[in-house]
């Protein structure tokens, strides 16, 4: 099984810590994650609003490159990229004529042998993950899946679209106590991330409020957009709600890293806007200032 890694733009920029923690964890797992050669933008969110062919051509080129390299699967940690690649694969394999046309556009043939996996699928497939846990992550956590990981159900065919469980199960393996809450797949407002920050503040605020009111100590995410809205937009959220939230938002890979006993800095925890206060005391996380420093 050869797994390729498609970082996309976020993992190289705003979500560097997601990438850092993923690669740190992969090293411990002994998994190599070579990047898909010469990868390009997945097209989210602009392309599929404007040009259907372009929306398919961009991911098709990525998938074809992975396939040409002999990769059996492509790990796509960003939920938006995952959605685009997954949808493209689905559409191309359903329609042979379309596949041929798009293959012609990108001058590369994608035949479907390279599959697309998200971060949860990838981690869930690791055997005996719980045996690698050195420091159980004994916190009450709210697993936040967001909108794209589990939808559209018929295309991603991953977990239950309305009440997903896979991340909760993974967290339980790491020693955490996932809470039962109502906002697992509610919208964080990412579509309006730039244009209507007030809406983002409202929608993300509702998510935080529900998590906090049910006793969660951390929100766990698997999507750079979710993280951005729940973490970086925290001042906007607090301003609108008129109250302070100090609940941190942590990537699934960071939780795994902490449970494995990796140093917080290797996991990029210092880059968060909201400090992860319960991270191991021996290496305090500087919080805000560190993020700016990076």
């Amino acid at each position: 099984m050869k797994t390729g890694f498609y970082p996309g733009c976020s993992m190289k920029g705003s979500a560097r810590e997601y990438s850092e923690s993923l690669l740190a964890v992969a090293r411990v797992l002994g998994r190599e994650l070579p990047e898909v050669p010469d990868w390009n933008c997945c097209g989210a969110t602009a392309a599929h609003n404007l040009d259907h062919d372009l929306a398919l051509a961009l991911p098709a080129r990525i998938l074809a490159a992975a396939e040409k390299k002999g990769m059996d699967e492509v790990l796509v940690p960003c939920a938006a990229c995952y959605s685009r690649l997954k949808v493209t694969r689905h559409e191309l394999l359903e329609d042979e004529k379309l596949r041929q046309r798009i293959s012609g556009l990108v001058e590369a043939d994608y035949r479907g042998s390279a599959k697309v996996v998200n971060i949860i699928e990838w981690l869930a497939a690791v055997p005996d993950l719980e045996k690698l846990v050195k420091k159980p992550f004994q916190r009450k956590v709210a697993c936040y899946y967001g909108c794209l990981l589990v939808r559209p159900a018929g295309i991603v065919e991953f977990d239950r679209p309305e009440e997903p469980q896979s991340m909760d199960l993974l967290m339980a393996k790491l020693g955490a106590k996932p809470i039962d809450w109502a906002f697992k797949t509610e919208c964080c407002g990412a579509g309006f991330s730039v244009s209507r920050t007030d809406l983002v503040a409202k929608l993300s605020g509702l998510i935080l409020e529900d998590a906090v009111s049910r006793g969660a100590e951390a929100v766990i995410v698997a999507c750079p957009m979710c993280h951005l809205n729940l973490d970086l937009r925290r001042p906007n959220i607090e301003k609108r709600a008129g109250k302070k939230y100090d609940i941190p938002v942590i990537y699934i890979t960071q939780v795994l890293g902490l449970a494995m006993g990796l140093p917080p800095k290797k996991l990029g925890l210092q880059r968060h806007k909201v400090a992860v206060k319960f991270a191991p005391a021996e290496s305090p996380v500087p919080g805000v200032s560190a993020k700016r420093g990076a």
């Binding site: 309305e162 809450w181 109502a182 509610e186 009111s213």
Partner: peptide, 11 residues
């Protein structure tokens, strides 16, 4: 789309 419990009531 969803029914969830909040403060003893169902939303």
């Amino acid at each position: 789309s969803r029914v969830y419990e909040r403060n003893g009531r169902l939303v």
